[in-house]
Amino acid sequence: MIAYLLRRLLATIPVMLVVALFVFALLHLSPGDPAAVIAGDYASPEDIERIRHKLGLDAPLHQQLAIWLWQVVRGDLGTSIFSNLPVSKLIGQRLEPTLTLTACTMIFAVLLAVPMGVVAAWKAGTWIDRSVMVFAVLGFSLPVFWLGFLFIFGFALKLQILPVQGYVSIREGLWPCLRHLVLPSLTLGMVYMALIARMTRASMLEVLREDYIRTAHAKGLKPHVVLLWHALKNASLPIVTVIGVGVALLIGGVVVTESVFAIPGLGRLTVDAILHRDYPVIQGIILIFSAIYVLINLLVDLMYMVLDPRIRY
């Protein structure tokens, strides 16, 4: 098992290397000269040359790559072109809201979607099942920002029961923090919930057909015990997979959701950086998000071992 763990860890290295190469290429394929952007509107050619030298942009490409990789490994992601602050600091400042939002959304989504899927499978073919399925298809089809504005319009402006925008750190109290996260989490979580509910239903349906469920029922066990203890446990593998893989979906959604709800997280940083062509920041964000994604996949794989003792490596 430890050997497997090591093998899995080693396997992430080439993946991250490809990501790093892409990210490096990003700066060098970008139109326009980063040195000229940094120098500003009125800079003389000598100024630009000086900046280029300072940034090491005049060195041969492979040398730049080596230097850059070494910097990244040491945690130095460069300096923002616009605010002149270290990229790692910018990302650090923005990490908390994004992580809180994502975590909150995951909890929301799992707590709502898994029961939905279980009930739909249990009552397969009834109106409950059908409405869950309609919800699941709709969840995939509604654009996140459209939904966000719908929520703002309804809950924050018409009913005035939830705040419109912004982020309150959990350090300033759990309730204020949660209040601000309800709408963004619902918005962000819709696709995710659809995915989980659908997978839970499919997986449960399959398990419910199995013989041992029938046996359990025959033994006279209470239906909910069978449902939760026997069925859900055995159906959990694909559900956990989809929860893990779906995180990528959340990362994409975060970028849009944070824009709608003015949450000062990594998503907003991304959009700002893209709009201003702040390449060092774009590079840093892609690296971080990809690393998170790879890490989560690793965790999902490990969960497999815990959840399904039959799998031995």
Binding site: P14, V15, M16, L17, V18, V19, L21, F22, A248, I251, G252, V255, V256, I286, F289, S290, Y293, V294
Partner: peptide, 8 residues
Amino acid sequence: GIMAIPAI
């Protein structure tokens, strides 16, 4: 590697 970068 490409898959590790969130699509959006």
